[in-house]
Design a protein around this nucleic acid. Structure first.
Lengths: 202, 202
DNA sequence: CCCTGAATGTAGACGCCGCCAACAATGCTG
DNA sequence: CAGCATTGTTGGCGGCGTCTACATTCAGGG
């Protein structure tokens, strides 16, 4: 019988790439910001050498990019799961808005990585595609309502922009601490109402 | 005649704190992101020792906080200068929106620092005050229009939120590259129109 | 006018980091 | 099963933020 555990580590991890992304997300949640996230620490947590991450991500930014894509995927899934195509637009938007806001608040650190203004050179197209998928949920809702004559005519993309910007802005405010979670969630219904009916009297 | 310039450096810089902030902003503009901003490099640029910045900012985050406050100040000034209180709300908002968007695009890196979700412990109140001053420009416009009966009744703060979130969201999209500058600027008028009159037919 | 303490800048060190290159173990495929 | 690509390890380089001890300058009261 060997003096030490023989199979402590099989030399090859098996799926180090996924393990790194998972560890990064967990650490991100704990530390609270992406700046204090170190490849060496991730490697330590997982139990591989400090240079091992380099085999899967050419540099730290590459890992952050991959993490952002994971985030977009998860966000799109969340929105698609929350969507209720049967509802009239106002209720449907309110539902989507709540889901987005909830996700943003629960994953604030991940959003920071996703919205970081620095993965421009490459990976930009993957990023764009991921964003479009997210916005798609809103766009479908708006387009459907428009076809039912529920809302004004015009380029659906422009109308979606109104909702998208408001929503994104609200989430930003909530994340950066201008609101409490409750205040932000509580504002959603009224916000959507104003978007639907405008600021001028009828 | 002395062999070397006698007054190359007066030992005490005079206003190192301001010099650091200025250098930081310049470097930020060049490098493009706040992550690659080093106290040691700033010190080198200015010509002081690597530990000198520590006399004015207890750590790197403290410098970023101060930089954020500078940014908020400048932004508020920009908005206040652009505001035209005489205009009807729609035009007034469009003007303010354009000014905000222009500032955001021209100072994208600074905005990244301002909206960073990490200076929570202290400095939070200064930050909040700075943000309120910025939002104040919008709030005044909305309140004035409301008093003139131009727009619906209700808590002005809530109505301002509608405009504020949409604006902030649009700026975020523009900054992170979802739009070109022109596309974003071109969307402003229509966006404000939809905010004023809503999505539902009249 | 100098003396003394507070501000401000310097020099050096510590530990951490990202990244690179050389080497070792493993998996895969012909 | 031989050989090559993949994956992980070790060691090292330079840069970073921060701390401590020390040097210089400034400012104000005797």
């Amino acid at each position: 019988m060997p003096a030490e555990k023989p199979e402590t580590r099989p030399y090859h991890h098996g799926d180090l790439r996924s393990a790194l992304l998972a560890a990064a997300e967990r650490t991100l949640r704990d530390k609270g910001t992406s700046a204090s996230l170190s490849l060496r620490e991730l490697a330590r947590d997982i139990g591989v050498s400090h240079a091992a991450p380099g085999r899967h991500f050419k540099d730290k930014q590459a890992l952050l990019n991959a993490l952002a894509l994971v985030g977009y995927d998860r966000m799109a899934e969340t929105l698609e799961a929350a969507d209720e195509p049967g509802l009239p637009l106002q209720d449907r938007l309110t539902t989507l808005a709540r889901a987005y806001l909830r996700f943003a608040i629960d994953n604030a650190e991940l959003l920071e990585v996703m919205y970081a203004r620095k993965h421009e050179p490459d990976a930009a197209e993957q990023m764009t595609a991921a964003i479009d998928r997210t916005v798609g949920a809103l766009e479908r809702a708006v387009a459907a309502a428009q076809q039912r004559g529920e809302i004004v005519e015009g380029d659906p993309e422009h109308l979606t922009l109104v909702v998208g910007t408001a929503l994104h802005g609200l989430a930003s405010f909530a994340i950066t601490g201008k609101f409490t979670t409750e205040a932000a969630m509580g504002s959603v219904a009224e916000l959507v109402h104003h978007l639907m009916y405008g600021l001028t009297p009828r």
